[in-house]
Amino acid sequence: MNLMLQKKPTNRNPFADLLDIQREMNSLFDVSLHRWGSRDEGLLESAWAPAIDIHDSKDNLVVKAELPGLKKEDIDVSVQNGTLVIKGEKKEETEKREKGVIRTERFYGSFHRAISLPTAVDESKVKAAYKNGVLELTLPKKEEAKPKQIKVNVD
């Protein structure tokens, strides 16, 4: 059977072709480096790990993790002893693929990412939101971890 969908043949401009190749290579590195290059756990622990960002403010740490196409209930977040663990499983819905698969580029299976937090956070007040395929965690800092201004009086 013919493929019903295929990648568009590149246009005849050779420079555009080169740019396309470059873009493909970039996206390949983009996917592979952050998924395997910066893992905290051994290779056998899980098949992939989401890319993350950490942002810092006076009162909070915000961690964002890229988890497209998941269900909220398939994501598990825990904080213990200063380590944040994001794990879960992306399930492949194989029963819908009754007539065959044309292309599979998405990752499936379990994921796991452990992050040592740079400051002490209040583990009981961590908030999580999942929007547009991005998990956003707000971790309030403990009082003693917040920056304090110390006034020095010079005589």
């Binding site: 969908l5 196409g69 009754e98 698969v101 044309i102 580029e105 547009n132 395929g133």
Partner: peptide, 28 residues
């Protein structure tokens, strides 16, 4: 802001072809 290929799955069912593209961080 580089232009990337979103990873896609394409599969067939009885009456349809279904394409799923992952675009994390893109608002609706």
């Amino acid at each position: 802001s580089p232009v990337l290929f979103p990873p896609v799955d394409i599969f067939e069912t009885e009456h349809e072809v279904v394409l799923e593209a992952e675009m994390a961080g893109v608002p609706k």
